[in-house]
């Protein structure tokens, strides 16, 4: 046993180093995942899309774009689209407005996350400007009108006639005190 003691200590230290390194590796997966997502073009809903090139407005086709605004349960805001829906041609540059108001007596920072119905429409829905690209901080009682500028590419499959753009505002906790 005694003759083993020193060798055992050395093995213990080596294995502890491995265990600590693997604990670090778990956290290293976070930036690695970001880099991989950027490289593969995943998770890009919160970044401006490149404007489509050589887009022709397809005047022979009408699309209904519906807007939907949601709040995650604990966010003390009101959030509504100014237009409930618009009828547009694929390829036409369109601007719509959303309104948001802070009903509470504290500064609150929120982040909107977009989603599309049907989901596959997201690929053809190019947002050139959107309030979801940055976090929004509202002072107590402050109201804000926020634009979304988008183009729906004419490549959108023919059987899709209605696209719903839905936003959900989430509170960014711990950010309330700072300006965005």
């Amino acid at each position: 046993m005694v003759s083993h003691a020193q060798a055992n200590q050395q093995t213990l230290v080596k294995l502890l180093v491995v265990a600590c390194a693997m604990f670090g590796f778990g956290f290293a997966m976070v930036p690695f995942y970001r880099v991989l997502c950027d490289a593969l073009g995943l998770n890009s809903v919160l970044k401006p899309d490149l404007p489509p090139v050589n887009t022709q407005v397809d005047t022979g086709r009408f699309l209904t774009i519906e807007f939907d605004a949601n709040l995650r349960s604990n966010l003390p805001w009101t959030f509504t689209p100014v237009e409930k829906s618009v009828r547009i041609h694929p390829g036409a540059l369109t601007q719509v407005t959303f309104e948001v108001r802070n009903r509470s007596d504290r500064r609150v920072t929120g982040q909107a996350i977009p989603s599309f119905g049907p989901q596959l429409a997201g690929r053809y829905f190019k947002k050139l400007d959107c309030f979801c690209f940055t976090q929004q901080t509202l002072a107590p009682g402050e109201a804000r009108r926020m634009p979304v500028v988008f183009v729906v590419e004419p490549g959108l499959p023919q059987d899709v006639n209605t696209v719903t753009l839905s936003y959900t505002f989430f509170e960014v906790e711990g950010k309330a005190g700072k300006d965005s």
Binding site: G26, M29, V30, Y33, C37, N43, L46, R72, G110, Q111, I113, F169, F170, E171, V172, E173, G174, K175
Partner: peptide
């Protein structure tokens, strides 16, 4: 107040599944 998995704060719930 960290945002590893909180989409609103720039995190990603799918990352949790990977880890």
């Amino acid at each position: 107040g960290t945002n590893f998995f909180n989409a609103a704060g720039g995190g990603d719930p799918v990352l949790f599944q990977h880890v």
